[in-house]
Amino acid sequence: MTSLLANFRRWQFWLTLIGLIALVIYPNVASSYLISLLTEVFVFAIFAMSLDLLLGYSGLSSFGHAAFFGLGGYILGFVARNWTANMFITLPIVLIGSALGALIIGFFALRTSGLSFLMFTLAASQMFFGIAIKWTAVTGGSDGLSGIPRPTIGVGDTVYRFGTGFQFYFVALIFFLIAFWLMRQLVHSPFGRALIGIKSNEARMKALGYNTWRYKMMAFTLAGVFAGLSGYLFAYFNRHVSPETFYWTTSGQVMIMVIIGGAGSLTGPALGAVLVRLLPSYVSSYTERWHAIMGLVFILFVLFAPQGIIGLLKKVGRVSNSPNEP
């Protein structure tokens, strides 16, 4: 008997195709509330996968990934309110802005490793939060920036405006697919393999002649860019950006998505995003204490299933396979 996973791979193409068609049909049959729910899932899936690049592939435990999520949102808010909401202009600005932010933070953060790295990134994101609260003239203080216009695309006078939630759903879907594909290519490339090598044994990679610092810096910057992209979409989606996007609970939430889903698999964190963003809309109608429940579920995974949902699935596949193994 072939394992569940091998079967899955054979049917992967068809599954993907069916999934894509379902995602395109979905907004035509779902209510506007359900459409916005899934839009949010796409945005957070990008965010979670970007953290997975660090946590799961490079072994860099960043506890302040919200820094770049917030940065992307605030840059968009500032540009869109003061200049234009045209994505041809806002997208490059946000990508370059988050890359610069990640380069600067990474330059200092990567002087440390392990737990100091974790503490530094957490502190850095809280500094962004503090600045967002206090520097009212630019960031709008604790109110944030509201009234962000809907995104447009186009050149000159021919401009298309994504004016409804239905239309923005497709924007988010396309960005999600592109980001997923790009990150997948990345982790399967020689560059990604080298990152995995650095994660498991940095000294050996150094001895093999790899400039590990440069690899980690690249990974940190790319993760920052993808996180910035998700923050950018989130700000367009809400038409508002608030200091909470920088707050440790945002970093915490995305960390929970990665760990519950299963670090080092990209699909896992995306699944984690589905779970963490969809569940509260069902659970919180019963209980106010969603954060505590999320924290509890998270702790249970850390204690009993550190490989996450993907790890559990693999285990199931292996168990059903084991009687035939020599």
Partner: peptide
């Protein structure tokens, strides 16, 4: 498992803040 210990205290912090 040092990282898991840190993750544990992270979940704990989340629960504590809410409680």
């Amino acid at each position: 498992r040092h990282l898991d210990q840190v993750l544990f205290t992270f979940g704990l912090a989340l629960i504590a803040a809410d409680m």
